[in-house]
Design a protein around this nucleic acid. Sequence first.
DNA 1: GATCAGTGGTCCACAATATGGACCGTTGCG
DNA 2: CGCAACGGTCCATATTGTGGACCACTGATC
Lengths: 308, 308
Amino acid sequence: MMAAVSANADAPRPAAPPPEHGKAARRSASWTIAHTADDTDRPSGSQSIQRAFVLLNLVGVLARDRPDGVSLAELTRVSGRPKASVRRVLVALVAEGYVEQDPDTACYRLGLQAGVLGELAGHRAGDLSEVSTDSLIRIADASTDTTFLTVRHGSYGVCTRRQEGPGPIRNYALAVGDRHPLGVGAGSLAVLSALSDENVEAVLTATATTRSHYPGFDDETLRNLVRRSRQAGYALNDGRVIAGSWALGVAVHDAAGRPVAALSVASIAERFDPERRDELAALLQTEAETIHAALTRSQESRPARGQP
Amino acid sequence: MMAAVSANADAPRPAAPPPEHGKAARRSASWTIAHTADDTDRPSGSQSIQRAFVLLNLVGVLARDRPDGVSLAELTRVSGRPKASVRRVLVALVAEGYVEQDPDTACYRLGLQAGVLGELAGHRAGDLSEVSTDSLIRIADASTDTTFLTVRHGSYGVCTRRQEGPGPIRNYALAVGDRHPLGVGAGSLAVLSALSDENVEAVLTATATTRSHYPGFDDETLRNLVRRSRQAGYALNDGRVIAGSWALGVAVHDAAGRPVAALSVASIAERFDPERRDELAALLQTEAETIHAALTRSQESRPARGQP
DNA sequence: GATCAGTGGTCCACAATATGGACCGTTGCG
DNA sequence: CGCAACGGTCCATATTGTGGACCACTGATC
């Protein structure tokens, strides 16, 4: 666990919120995640809504492995917003059923409607998540490591699925719901590397402020990583996000050929010697191609919009 | 299909939105659903957030069986709000990734983050949905009819799960995400009937304005239905919501003994002769008890909040 | 090809709405 | 018994969201 938090993009005030990643304060999260989409965006008349959803994401991610939920204090700390505001929003979310408050601990976790929304969104046939489940399972089985599906969303990558492998090694560097700038993490880097140079630059500028919270991911480093990934045919994260935690990713292209996601496998550094890298890359590439084919197929059968 | 829509509670202006349920206008929905929680609630400083989530629910429900999504026009029509406002909120939702807009049709459907949220909320062990899946499958198999799990949320009931039976009869009266006042529909009525008289009255007043859109569900009728349900030991919806579509429901109690949900089975009127009613009621009651037991068990094992 | 009803999308003066610093009542630690 | 950290509440303020009016486009229908 120890999963990723903080640094809301909208308040450029330094605010000095995260006491570095040194001795992690309290039981709160120790590191950074991007909760909102673009830094570049112009809120233009919906700031409160944006804040509400950022907070909702935060509740989801922070309460992920905590059945009791997240405390108001932690949410205020991590969101960097005044307590009163956070609470007001939380009350609204509770009223809507998207968040529920534990009557005993007074902590917050995702509520009924969150599940309903997932139910409504999840089983969209022809959807990426839908068609990639089999691939994820195959990769996890074959590699015996933890496998991820990262989906591109604007200039960011969101982990939308995670499949544990049968092996003894567990990797907690990435979990469903985590969001990082494109380029941070193997899958995310694979997507970035599959973009045109022009788009890469656009992403770099768009994620600049967010990336200031990620040590060791400056523009130049990322450009180098992109170059290396293109050359190798796969993206390698050699412990840059969390020391000792390595991963290897390959981009997935949609029917139109655009890189919209990535498959990746994570484990400890020792399991990424050159030979195994090639094996893994081949494995991932095959499955990425399978998914691409499935997406293309389901795209072709679209125009028919029959109905009983 | 033809599933349920409209009548946002916050705008008491008559507005004459739904042209009755007669010749369904356009391809839009023909009937009513409650999208927001309480009529009684005091928005107190979060009206825009409430509106955003109401709209999000609306997108989810309306786009449910429509891969292309919902048009802006339909959303404005059905939400009863000015187009500009609806659009502004939609843009915000899109920016957050909870809604996506089809680049071709310009229609809106649930987006990436909606699925992620569901993923984060869904697999909460010890959760109601989690422990009731087996029961739903068993009921659907045994009855050969469509089976539902309805969860109480305030004075309303939300359909959170739906299991098709192997039989030839399909029922489209209720689908995941649909929300109705307690008392409307078999499962919903089962929950209402399991409440104390005092609570029943509270629900009746809370849902009064919403229920004005549901013909044939006035206070007196509901009180009669509650009385009948308590006597029979099960709730019967004899085609009151949609003609010819009957259903039978039984309440599910949580570890503390409160009725928090209901199991129900729906089919055509012909399949609800007295004998079969008793069979179904017994079946549902057994499963409701099973779920209750599971909830109690998982509740007891709670206090231990260990962590590596 | 002009009309019209229907889309999706944009603008901006106005005030209702969300904001957040200050404050209160508890709890639990030293 | 302070003291710190907690959840929760208040309310004057101006920032924020509001929504009527308007534009451009499309495709029936006359």
